[in-house]
Design a binder for these strands. Structure first.
Lengths: 167, 167
DNA sequence: CAGCAACTATAGCGGCGGCAATATTCCCCC
DNA sequence: GGGGGAATATTGCCGCCGCTATAGTTGCTG
């Protein structure tokens, strides 16, 4: 084993990306924790709030987060217990149920969002001048388009309607 | 709540970064799974193999991975059970113990590394022309230097010696 | 040299999340 | 109109990991 394989530029590139992700994640989690939210709970709140009627079917919510359907069931359990969201029966399909944000959930999001945006600016977007930031984002966009799960999720075209709203 | 907050360029920027991370992580995990390794186990193997003597104290291993010390204890338990690494008593300090890679561990790493590198090239570094890649990496480096945990770990200067080896 | 604070590794406990199984409902095709 | 396959949400079971307490060790300090 040649020890210098670890100096391979490919390794250092992903190392860089992952370190940035880890650093940002940690700071986000710390700030969200001050508002009694975990990272996934914040994302659930965000996804629901940007959806029409502040609601989403459980399956669609799972598709938009990086959670399995059972994971969504559990996080919705917790947040419903905390009064942040509620389940509502779907009128057109009795298998489905909606997760809908409560006023308390919206308020919690309002409280935590400004600090979150400030954190992004302080530790990420504000660290680079506009040109460098654009170059970074362009590169990320290009990689994202290649590696994005939606590009490979074309196995069953039946769910295309919901996926089209996501991607 | 103005729904357009979510179009804030800061939100989309982190969304991009996190999507790329999630996509790459998923593909890495799938490939490593073919070799019977999880992502953390692969990282442990990597960190140990690039260290002098193919070994590291448990605490230092925890510092280099994003695991707590108890997390390191458990992952070393599993990998020791699988014959990938071994514990060795530290001669100079009877509190410490080394985790050291076994030949089987090195072989496992050798088997999985080429595919891993290929994956990085296919889905990340190979997606951009050299100039764009350099711009991306420069931006990441700048953000990393700002957000890196080591920059904030200066609360107790006593551990500076070990940290200096990491950063 | 005695005592004390810091450090190191580990074990118990609890939360979180994925996989597979299950019950219910829907849709399509005969 | 009825039967079979797909979709949806949930639950049980399990593994992973962080927090905290614990035991052993070290070094400093009075």
């Amino acid at each position: 084993m040649n020890p210098n394989v670890f100096d391979d530029p490919r390794i250092t590139a992903v190392g860089l990306l992952f370190e940035v992700h880890a650093g940002l994640s940690a700071r986000f989690a710390a700030q969200l924790d001050e508002h009694g939210l975990s990272a996934v709970e914040f994302e659930v709140l965000t996804r629901l709030s940007r959806s029409p009627g502040n609601q989403l079917r459980m399956t669609d919510l799972a598709a938009q987060t990086s959670l399995s359907t059972s994971g969504v069931t559990r996080v919705v359990d917790r947040m419903e217990r905390d009064g942040l969201i509620t389940r509502r029966a779907c009128p057109s399909d009795r298998r489905s149920s909606y997760a809908v944000v409560t006023p308390a959930g919206l308020q919690r999001l309002d409280e935590s969002l400004p600090g979150h945006l400030q954190l992004i600016e302080d530790w990420f977007t504000g660290q680079l001048d506009p040109a460098a930031l654009n170059a970074l984002l362009d590169g990320l966009r290009q990689v994202r388009d290649a590696v994005h799960p939606c590009a490979t999720a074309g196995s069953s075209g039946a769910t295309g309607a919901t996926n089209s709203a996501v991607c």
